[in-house]
Amino acid sequence: MKKTDVIIIGAGPIGLFAVHQLGIKGLKAVVIDNLDKAGGQCIELYPDKPIYDIPAVPECTGEQLTTRLLEQIKPFKTELFLNERVDEVDKERDNWVVKTNNKKEFIAPNIIIAGGVGSFEPRKLSLKELEKFEGKSVFYAVRNKEHFKNKKISIFGGGDSALDWALELSKFSKITLIHRRNEFRGAQHTLSELRKLEKEGKVSIKTQCQIEAFDNEKELKSITIKFEDGKKEKILTDVILGFFGLIMKLGPIAEWGLNMDKKTIEVNPKNFETNKKGIFAAGDICSYPGKLKLILSGFHEVALASVECFKRARPNEKYKFEFTTSSKTIQNRLGKK
């Protein structure tokens, strides 16, 4: 179990800036995120889209904002635990114990939840009954290519993931690529390669159609797709791969006993503490009268929460407000001489 001053849930812009605000006060933190990289929605939803309302930054993209925040918190050498979803939060005397889906454990007097709209999870196929095949013959990611050799694979989606894996797996499996419309948004050169393979009869591409049914037996044997004109076709399939991007799900946060308002966590706007002492929420996931879901609001929220975190992590020390411009202590922490 790793001990720290503050456990930050969410590596989006607010979680990252929390590291800064805690760091200049001399507090240690860890950051946990379900995605495989830092940046949250900024990196997952709009890495290339411009943001115009970061103070003193007239224009930057989601990716640039993330890169700059990571740069800004470098001096604090904070550990980021990625690909980890926080599942459980339990009280242990004056501390909180956090457990992830991969059984990692952390303990700290404070938690800052900067979870945006929740954790990113793969979007699934609309046929709910397919759930029972998940992890056996229905997948939403390729972790180990070996599992996909010598199979009849139906790949759904029109983006880069669908095209790339169709091409890659076609080397040793029979691929049917299925997409709801004629246009693919993935890289066109990958598509032309696939079209070439299609002409050679090595890959089959079906468009303007969606999954309608599947062989509901013990094992997946075939699926039926339905075209826009109403025609149906049966496709022998023992593996389905779906690439529909990611969706945000509130997930386990709803079960931690926090006062919620729909999908957001109610906080006291004085210090952004929730109804549980030592658990704070900031950024899009918190709600209070007048809340605006802006990145700049989140920055303010973690600044205030970090003061309360200090009081809880250092009960015997007096909190002293300082400016980064003039405080030697802060400048030392930032590695400036």
Binding site: G157, G159, R181, E183, R185, Q210, E228, G245, I247
Partner: peptide, 15 residues
């Protein structure tokens, strides 16, 4: 086009 691209990811998209 960008909207169509997003609709690819929606739950049960139709015409």
């Amino acid at each position: 086009e960008a909207e169509e691209d997003m609709i690819d990811m929606a739950f049960e998209p139709k015409k």
